[in-house]
Amino acid sequence: MSLKLEGICKSFSLPGQRVHALSNVSLSADPEEFITVIGSNGAGKSTLLDIVAGVRHPDKGRVQIAGRDVTSRPAHRRARWVGRVFQDPLQGTVPDLTVEENLALACKKGRRGLRFALGRRRRHLWADALSRLDMSLERRAQELSGHLSGGERQALTVLMATMARPEILLLDEHTAALDPANADRVLRITQDLVGEGGMTTLMVTHRMDQALCLGSRLIMLHAGEILLEVAGEAKSSLQVTDLVRLFHRRGVSDDALLLEATEKTRG
């Protein structure tokens, strides 16, 4: 078992109310499994990823990664096993470091020493990895990453997040801020790198078509609970219209997500 969440509860207090972001969520993922996660705003998707990454800690429940209980470990002490790509391309790179310096930051996930971060051998490896993104970034390795476009930056972020071969890769709507062409490109790069690295992947997306065509399992979160879980053949035969019908039956009707999906099926 690569990832195991047991009875995760997490609530936040907002002025005047208590919001249950996750109530009693359990989930296990096998090595190399690719799980897509959908749900409306406030369904708990990001909280779920935050809890796996260790940025937030559950009020109740346990988190296991690669057989270790990491529930109480802070994010930097489980970074070795977790890679993450955010929606905002600005968050995944350091703008005032060069492309290769960003890569140097990403390929070391434990203690940092006084060794030089950039060596000839490493540069060679990175140039190789960059060239496979097919964005000519290998020729811009010494440019500040702040000068890259959103798509280029997000591709670089995916490379960084997968470079150290983490056990788990978290993708948080990582193509949502990109234009369609770049979104497709970054998605293709993600699939390639995930396939090579053999990581367990949790991908949050707001696009039902994406959630259906990618991965081997689909999870629908609603109001902090897993509302629906489809895997294997049941998932591959599922259509967007089926999904919409399923949600309706479960009483999710006033949902922006459904609206969007319905529009897509009409278009």
Partner: peptide, 15 residues
Amino acid sequence: RAAGGNPRLVQAYGA
């Protein structure tokens, strides 16, 4: 240097 510009990222990469 990264910690000044993007502390969240530094944490995600294990420091």
